[in-house]
C-alpha cells in the first residue's frame, strides 16, 4: 500500500490507500467542524473566506486563514520532500511512511491537548486547526505523490469532477469496456464512500466518545503503516529463513494471487 511507487502500484494498492486515508480525513474534517467550526481537510473554502475577510477589512481573520492555507501547503511540501529525498537514506518504505508518522503525531497531539489542556481560547483553536491542516496536507501530499496523482483523499471537489466526467463517458460502450476507466471509477467511488462514512461515523460517535475520536483516526493511520511493515517482514523472513515457504509463495504468486509488479520482482529474486 505504501512502499510501491507511481506506475508500480496496483489498483488494489490505490483502493486500500485511498479508502483508508479518505476515511481518516473524513473523520478529521467532521471533528474539526464540531470542535473548532473550521474545515481542516480541504482548503478551497478557505480561499473564498480569505477573500471575503479581506473585502470586509478583517485583517486578523484573513491572516489566520492565509496561515492555515500555508500550513496545508507546507504539509504537502514536507510529505513530498521526505519521499523524494528520504528514499536514498532511509529506504522507500520508511520514506513513504514518515509523512504518515508525522500526521499521526500531529493528530495524537491535538487529541491529547483537547482532552487535557484545552481552555477554548481563540489562540489554541487557531494553532490546533493549523496542526490539523498541516496533517491533512501531509496525507494528501503523500497519497498524491506515491500514486502518481491518482489518489487524493482529503477533499472531494476534484474527485466529483472526475466522477461526473466518467459517468458521462460511460454512456458510450467503448468507454464502459475500458478496464482502466472502470478501475478509476471504482477508486473514486471508494474514496468518496470512505470519506463520507468517516464523517458520518464521527458525527454519530463524537457526542459519546468526544475527543477520543482522534485515537480512532490514529489507529486507522497505524493500520496503513503497519500493513506494509507486516508484508515487508513476511518477505524478509521468507527470503532469509524459509526457502521452502518462499518457493511456495512464488508458486502462489504465479497462480495470480499477487499482483503483477510484486510478482515479477519475487520471481527474479
Amino acid at each position: 500500500m505504501l512502499r510501491k511507487y507511481s506506475t508500480h502500484r496496483t489498483h488494489s494498492d490505490n483502493m486500500k490507500l485511498g479508502g483508508l486515508t479518505a476515511f481518516s480525513s473524513g473523520m478529521v474534517n467532521v471533528i474539526s467542524l464540531i470542535v473548532f467550526f473550521a474545515f481542516t481537510s480541504n482548503v478551497t473554502g478557505h480561499f473564498a473566506i480569505f477573500a471575503q475577510e479581506i473585502a470586509k477589512g478583517n485583517w486578523y481573520q484573513a491572516t489566520v486563514v492565509l496561515l492555515w492555507i500555508l500550513l496545508f501547503f507546507l504539509g504537502s511540501f514536507t510529505a513530498n520532500m521526505l519521499i523524494i529525498h528520504g528514499n536514498k537514506y532511509i529506504g522507500r518504505y520508511l520514506a513513504h511512511a514518515t509523512p504518515l508518522i508525522l500526521e499521526t503525531l500531529c493528530l495524537l497531539f491535538v487529541g491529547i491537548y483537547l482532552q487535557n489542556f484545552y481552555k477554548e481560547t481563540l489562540q489554541e483553536t487557531e494553532i490546533l486547526v493549523a496542526l490539523m491542516l498541516f496533517a491533512m496536507g501531509l496525507q494528501n501530499g503523500l497519497t498524491a505523490s506515491i500514486s502518481n496523482f491518482s489518489v487524493k483523499s482529503t477533499h472531494l471537489t476534484g474527485l466529483l469532477t472526475d466522477l461526473g466526467i466518467l459517468f458521462s463517458m460511460f454512456t458510450k460502450e467503448r468507454f464502459r469496456a475500458d478496464k482502466q476507466l472502470r478501475e478509476k471509477w471504482q477508486l473514486l467511488l471508494c474514496i468518496m464512500t470512505c470519506y463520507v462514512c468517516g464523517g458520518i461515523i464521527t458525527g454519530l460517535l463524537f457526542y459519546s466518545i468526544s475527543y477520543s475520536a482522534f485515537y480512532i483516526v490514529c489507529a486507522v493511520l497505524c493500520v496503513i503503516m503497519l500493513y506494509d511493515y507486516y508484508k515487508l517482514s513476511v518477505i524478509k523472513y521468507m527470503h532469509k529463513k524459509q526457502p521452502l515457504i518462499r518457493q511456495h509463495y512464488i508458486i502462489k504468486e504465479a497462480s495470480g494471487e499477487e499482483k503483477e509488479p510484486y510478482k515479477k520482482k519475487m520471481v527474479v529474486d
Binding site: 473548532f36 473566506i49 492555515w68 477554548e120 481560547t121 481563540l122 487557531e126
Partner: peptide, 11 residues
C-alpha cells in the same frame, strides 16, 4: 463565552 473558528463564532 469563547470565540472559536477563525474568530467568527461566539459560543
Amino acid at each position: 463565552w469563547n470565540v472559536k473558528g477563525r474568530g467568527h463564532i461566539l459560543e
